[in-house]
Amino acid sequence: MKGNSTASSHQPQTLIDGKPVSRREFISRLALGGGALVLLSGCSRWALPGSGAKDREKIYEFIAVDYSKCTGCRTCEAVCASANNPVSVDGRMMPGPGNPALSNIYVHSFNPDVSAPAVCASCADIPCVNACPVDPDPATGRRALFREAKWGGITNDPERCISCGSCVDACGADSVGILAQHPETGRPMRMCTLCDGDPECVRHCPYDALSMIRVTADHPYYRMSPEEIAEKLSNRWYDLSV
């Protein structure tokens, strides 16, 4: 884990069906077929904040991956790109053809076989927003990158963005590393929109590997890079390192 990892200093508590388990146990359960836990215990409530959760660790929604179910098919990429890049046909907006280069979720595949979809973690401490050098708007208090109120998604204000890439660097240094600069505009891309609360990737994943859940920083694999995740899973599944 990168950045503000606390995993090594103490064992945060997570609740599964109301019973506290250690982080270590939790990770091993998840990877050993614990996908069922996500379904059985109610997607949005299974990872509640531990007793030590601070105010700043406000709960946000994000797309959680059950790596034991993901097959690396990249359907999520295509449907994300379709929904978030609609096309106007005869004056009506409709889902685009689904170019995965425009997706906000990116599946990283490794040898030996591990597929690790990377998606915006909706970090509570918003390193990307905090790295934005644009002065906050006096009226709204927003920089060029900000967290929108409804779903907590990170949003870019194209009018005020100076295309400096600071947010992208911060995401790479402190979180998943999903943000990228648009090849033409230089503005940040791949912030998850959560599709207004009904994410297309979750709806269309053929393998039920994705769910929209509320998390705290002690969620397993949370904010890890795909490479770190792949190394851990590869060691566990195949008894090898990537």
Binding site: T71, G72, R74, T75, D113, P206, W237
Partner: peptide, 13 residues
């Protein structure tokens, strides 16, 4: 066998 894998946008794996 440890896991199932799929080709592009395939639901058969």
């Amino acid at each position: 066998w440890v896991r199932d894998f799929a080709c592009y946008c395939c639901c058969l794996a």
